[in-house]
Nucleic acid binder design. Structure first.
Length: 604
RNA sequence: GCACCCAUAGCUCAGCUGGAUAGAGCGCUGCCCUCCGAAGGCAGAGGCCGUAGGUUCGAAUCCUACUGGGUGCACCA
């Protein structure tokens, strides 16, 4: 059966190869062809038995002049097969050349095999994109595994600021990306409402409450003087009247804590909404206290012999002033790759912040997730190892935890650094950013950099309508497609995607057109790479390249009328050209959808 | 002192589970356009991928050691 694939007619081949790969990813299709051919070669004795084809790759060549796709098969197999790479490559080339999809197969360099593919394959890609719409590129790579993406998790002590914004956008895009490649994704926010910072919040709100009662108040060190608490204090006054005035903390602290965190979470939910982020779960840290959850998690670790009483060595090189040896309850995280064991209980018997975090991740494991992802700010980098250790220990290495760190956002205004200072009140919040530049621009721009690289955000530049601005450039490409569709309709030509998918595309042959089609063919592959690496920024970069190829073709139309999408008075030719344009738009829409950006149909 | 992240063109950055002559934008140089297919186009110069070793048929990519930057380092979250 496998050998027959070499001589089977094209439609049969396509059907056979497409079943598993859903026919969407041309690269995996061709890779399958290569593997099948290698199998056939083994059966014929042209290759020794027992070779591992896992490292055989089919990739786009760096230089398009080399062809459409390249495979490293000969080089990877040369050693285990005890053959010369050229010999394998030659034999493989001859056989692949017999496949109707392969126009030419040439050996190059040290043993690369460069393939040129029949133009109809690229046309097929366009048809697939038009038929499947924004589902084109979806993958079953995730096998419906359940993944929990925890992101934002800002302390409920104030509005979200720019740093949170990046984490929110990144986490949200990552979650969408994973959904797109076939994971069952839960978006989750961990509310840090259990620690001492909530007491600080409560006291700050209390001061605003007194202020609402006409008292003169001062905000000592260690309280939050932010204006945003004024209305919370006033609202508290409306609720309880003068009940807490001049009362000791025992009377009001618990109540005000709850009241304040609720108010802050309302604020944060509003911020998230403004950014278009919708969480599936808000998980309260506080809910872990006094419910036995923390104790249960630590007991699970204890059962594995990972909890003990001990005294840590002082950190070398930089001894804290008030250092003194202290016996604590420790988690033996060094068994799982951490540098030192970590305390879970303070000397006064209370939990450290790490304890509820362990319990929280234990809870995620118990909820049955196959994979966990935490998105933290880069300043929490030192926390990664212990968290991974805890998850590894609690799940017996079954549940992988990937921690993604987001680097700083540096703000600029017209090229000048924009200094932030909480004291001076120039504290830039998520709302400031979204209100000024809009949700889409914010989201896209936040993803134009790898998560662990610092990001420049210039309020003016991100709004610029020019090629220099990726947000604009990508949207502009999409707008141009829709402009063509509108113009075509004015000229009496309207096309549904089904019309376009059924159109005769044999006229789409120009190099600039095929370049664009090939870029569209790369989309499913790119998505899988981005999904595998948990790197949504790759989507943004790809979209920029796709837009660039589209604009290049568009510009060619200025000099070469045959390359214009709109061919006056020629419905057939126009439908083929527009199929290409619309397929581009489909991919842009799919990509922007993952990033959480609304594709623009026109520029204003 | 230790750990983690980073180091690629003058600047800001991409670079796929290791692949061919390392890419993009800005800036620079030259040419073209100033046409609503508009918010420019085309071309060119520009690189010891921080340094030194190692693994490999093959390294910007993996390993080791350095150098330089960022972050974090017991009872704060």
């Amino acid at each position: 059966m496998r050998r027959r694939t070499l001589t089977a007619p094209l439609p049969v081949l396509n059907r056979m190869l497409s079943q598993k790969d859903a026919a969407m990813n041309l690269f995996t299709q061709i890779r399958t062809l290569v593997i099948e051919t290698l199998n056939a070669m083994q059966a014929e004795g042209a290759l020794p038995e027992g070779l591992d084809f896992a490292n055989v790759a089919v990739e786009p060549p760096r230089d398009p002049l080399h062809g459409d796709m390249a495979t490293n098969a000969a080089m990877v197999l040369a050693k285990p097969a005890k053959m010369k790479p050229r010999d394998i490559a030659d034999a493989l080339a001859t056989r692949l050349g017999n496949d109707p999809r392969v126009v030419s197969a040439e050996v190059a360099g040290p043993g690369f095999l460069n393939l040129r593919l029949d133009a109809d394959l690229w046309h097929g890609v366009l048809r697939t994109a038009l038929k499947q719409g924004t589902a084109y590129g979806r993958s079953d790579m995730g096998q419906n595994k359940r993944v929990n993406v925890e992101y934002v998790s800002a302390n409920p002590t104030g509005p979200m600021h720019v740093g949170h914004t990046r984490g929110a956008v990144f986490g949200d895009a990552l979650a969408s990306l994973l959904d797109y490649v076939g994971y069952d994704v839960t978006r989750e926010y961990y509310i840090n409402d259990g620690g001492a910072q909530v007491d600080v919040l409560a006291r700050s709100v209390y001061l605003r409450y007194l202020e609402a009662h006409g008292q003169e108040v001062a905000f000592p060190e260690g309280t939050y003087p932010g204006e945003y608490l004024v209305e919370v204090g006033a609202a508290l006054k409306d609720k309880v009247g003068g009940a807490y005035v001049d009362q000791p903390e025992e009377v009001w602290l618990q109540e005000v804590r709850v009241y304040s965190t609720d108010a802050m979470m309302d604020l944060i939910r509003g911020d998230l909404k403004a950014l278009g982020v919708e969480m599936d779960v808000f998980y309260s840290e506080k809910s872990l206290y006094g419910t036995g959850r923390i104790e249960a998690a630590l007991k699970a670790l204890d059962a594995k012999g990972l909890i003990y009483r001990g005294t840590l060595e002082p950190p070398k090189g930089k001894l804290p002033e008030d250092w003194e040896p202290r016996e604590q309850t420790l988690f033996k995280s060094t068994d799982y790759g951490d540098d030192v064991d970590r305390p879970v209980q303070k000397s006064d018997g209370g939990w450290t912040y790490f304890a509820p975090d362990i319990a929280y991740h234990f809870d995620k494991i118990e909820r049955g997730f196959d994979m966990l992802i935490d998105v933290f700010g880069a300043d929490h980098g030192g926390y990664v190892k212990r968290m991974k250790a805890a998850v590894a220990a609690l799940s017996d290495n079954r549940v992988p935890l990937d921690v993604k760190l987001t680097q700083l956002v540096k703000l600029y205004k017209n090229g000048e650094p924009f200094k932030m200072s909480k004291r001076a009140g120039t504290f830039v919040t998520l709302r400031d950013v979204v209100d000024q530049v809009g949700r889409d621009v914010t989201r896209f721009h936040m993803l134009t950099r790898k998560n662990d690289a610092p990001l420049d955000f210039d309020f003016d530049k991100v709004m610029e309508q020019s090629k220099d601005n990726p947000v604009f450039y990508v949207n502009y490409a999409n707008a141009r497609v829709h402009s063509v569709l509108r113009k075509a309709a004015e000229a009496g030509m309207t096309f549904t995607d089904a019309d376009l998918a059924a159109a005769d595309l044999s006229g789409v042959t120009h190099e600039a057109e095929l370049t664009l089609a090939k870029k569209i063919a790369e989309w499913p592959r790119l998505v899988e790479i981005a999904g595998r690496t948990n790197e949504p920024h790759r989507i943004a970069f790809y979209l920029y390249e796709l837009a660039s190829d589209f604009h290049a073709l568009w510009n060619r139309g200025n000099d070469t009328p045959e390359l214009r999408f709109l061919q006056e008075g020629n419905t057939d030719a126009t439908s083929a050209k527009i199929a290409l344009a619309k397929a581009t738009s489909v991919v842009i829409s799919a990509g922007l959808g993952i990033l959480g950006v609304t594709p623009a149909k026109e520029m204003r």
